[in-house]
Write a protein that binds this DNA or RNA. Structure first.
Lengths: 341, 341
DNA sequence: GAAATCTTCGAAAGCCATTTCGTGCAAGCT
DNA sequence: AGCTTGCACGAAATGGCTTTCGAAGATTTC
């Protein structure tokens, strides 16, 4: 047979018991380190289990325990760059223990999500993490779910749910504060789609920081796509209209890469002549540009870990609170705002 | 309670039966659309199930059926760009049916992998897909696994296993053939770490194509990292040593981006003066460069789908064969090799 | 030596849904 | 009326494991 033998299906506890010459009950106790089993007997059982490479059937166990040691991860867009670190963080937090992750990708489709949700519930997952692809609020799964639910990245639109999302407002503020700390005063903003809450939140934070310093944005924020192309085009327009600009806060690293490109084309030196800061800290982009890109990192992996931790806590009966929590972001300084020493 | 009520645990079939005033057996039959149930009775049961929002316990079902409707996805590096499309393809193929995916990330650690494997087996997955992070062969999980195993991307080192991996040899050949078709004859190769099978396979394919056309590579293949930085540096060296080169085959899109950068800096126009082709067809990089990047796409999503399909077939008892299968790749032509019309 | 106390083990119930098989009943037939 | 036939439903076994509780044997105590 090609792939494998599949001959004898996995050994069961009674196989082990028979080989060890004890009852099923005793075998179970021996394998689970319970009392009331003589040392010699336990040894025999363990050896038998070893020999049959016995693996307890998690389903049978779960059926009894009422717990499956399984958590569902309901994403809406696997492709998205933001999903992966969150997923990793969650997998990380779980992986250490006995918990495994059920992955479901709804492909951004509500019907499919409902379908997957049902599948997860029928598998009796102990908890669910819902990962969205934007920071805009998404429809709640409802309060009727019989297991804890935590929303990551995209918060739920129902305040009774617990949501963890990066703090874009503070991110915007930090970016501007950093630019000001670098001595910049004529700061412009190029960002992506204005329909994204992320774009608006970052602008709000940026404006707050500028206000606090008695400054104003150079021109209006420039909206369009989250792409390098737009970054290039926007930068060209910006530098023509406002040649005296000395810093650009970009809504994404992709946009920032475009801005760097145009700056180079037009002979503006970065960071001396023009400081550029990105957003997302997408390493591949940020560390391979010339100069390397200062950026805001949303700590997504940590966000994923926290979401997992909350689910754990809830499973253990801990009250994990509710509402939308904005998790701290961090500034990663590179050459595009501060000259290399 | 914060996250949800969790009050009454999920309803069971006997709850439904009691509410409908029938036996468990009848309830089961009604819900599963089996015969021997009067229409009126079925209606009553369905209504009861609806009311209790009954979801059948997949574990109990699996315990009977001997099948769990679950497949394990054992990756070694979630971070990797290659993992995601494969994962999506697999999830795609499964998602349509009743199958769900267990995701395990071994973080490239053999111990952790063993641990996860055991967890998957104890969950009685019906099959396993092992996804590696490079195309270099990886240690087999062994022939003792009681369920079908398919290796994706990274083939198993045991020819008795079934492995699906992209055809890097043909990829290299296609790249060169395309450049030749574009009228180029002085072709150089800049790639990444020579320890990668991917690098060597692509070179072998490239050499075969050059041979067939009676051509030779300009200079030796240039090895180092799979980064933009290296692409820039390598291109600078190349253009200095061999100013007459008219095409560069790059081992990755990142390297190609670096090459484009340097070409621009040195005033070489792409594609007229110098054609550049990348590898991987990483859309974000390939479509945002100037000009857009021609590249080789490994069809990873399809690879994932195929892996899933093979697992399905094996579960259904179909002999799915063995050995390493090299899946077709495809050329994606953009502006870096052919001028925009 | 008899009674009390451990120690060690096994029988059996239970988790939840499916399925086989048998029972009760009404309708159909001669 | 007496028989078969068909229908609708339920009792019970099944699957793999845990756990409770009782029983047998070994040990200690007076």
């Amino acid at each position: 047979m090609a792939v494998n033998e599949m001959g004898s299906r996995a050994a069961t506890l009674s196989d082990v018991a028979r080989l060890a010459g004890v009852s099923i009950a005793t075998a179970s106790k021996a394998l689970n380190d319970r009392d009331d089993v003589a040392v010699a007997t336990r040894q025999r059982v363990l050896r038998a289990a070893e020999e049959l490479s016995f693996t307890p059937n998690a389903m049978a166990k779960g059926l009894l325990a009422g717990r499956t040691g399984t958590v569902g991860l309901l994403t809406s867009d696997l492709e998205g760059r933001f999903m992966i670190p969150i997923l990793m963080g969650a997998e990380d937090a779980f992986g250490a223990g006995q918990v495994n992750v059920f992955l479901c990708d709804a492909r951004g489709d509500a019907i499919r999500e409902q379908h997957h949700l049902k599948a997860l519930l029928s598998r009796r997952v102990d908890g669910i993490i819902v990962v969205g692809r934007q920071t805009d609020p998404r429809p709640s799964l409802g309060q009727e779910i019989p297991v804890p639910v935590v929303y990551a990245y995209a918060p739920s639109d129902d305040p009774r749910d617990l949501s963890l999302t990066p703090d874009n407002y503070v991110g915007g503020r930090m970016a501007i504060e950093h630019l000001i700390a670098c001595g910049r005063t004529r700061i412009a903003h190029i960002t992506g789609d204005p329909a994204y809450a992320a774009a608006q939140d970052r602008i709000a934070g940026a404006r707050a920081a500028l206000d606090a310093a008695g400054l104003e944005l150079v021109g209006d924020p420039m909206f369009s796509e989250w792409t390098e192309h737009w970054g290039r085009d926007a930068a060209a327009m910006l530098l023509q209209r406002h040649p005296d600009v000395d810093a650009v806060f970009c809504g994404s690293d992709q946009i920032a890469r475009g801005v760097l490109d145009t700056a180079r084309d037009l002979g503006r030196s970065v960071p001396d002549d023009l400081a550029v800061i990105g957003y997302d800290n997408w390493e591949v982009l940020a560390t391979n540009s010339r100069p390397q890109l200062t950026s805001i990192d949303a700590n997504l992996q940590q966000l994923g870990r926290q979401a997992a931790q909350r689910v754990f806590d809830a499973i253990d009966g801990v009250d994990i609170g509710q509402g939308t929590h904005h998790l701290p972001v961090r500034l990663v300084i590179r050459g595009s705002t501060i000259p290399r020493r």
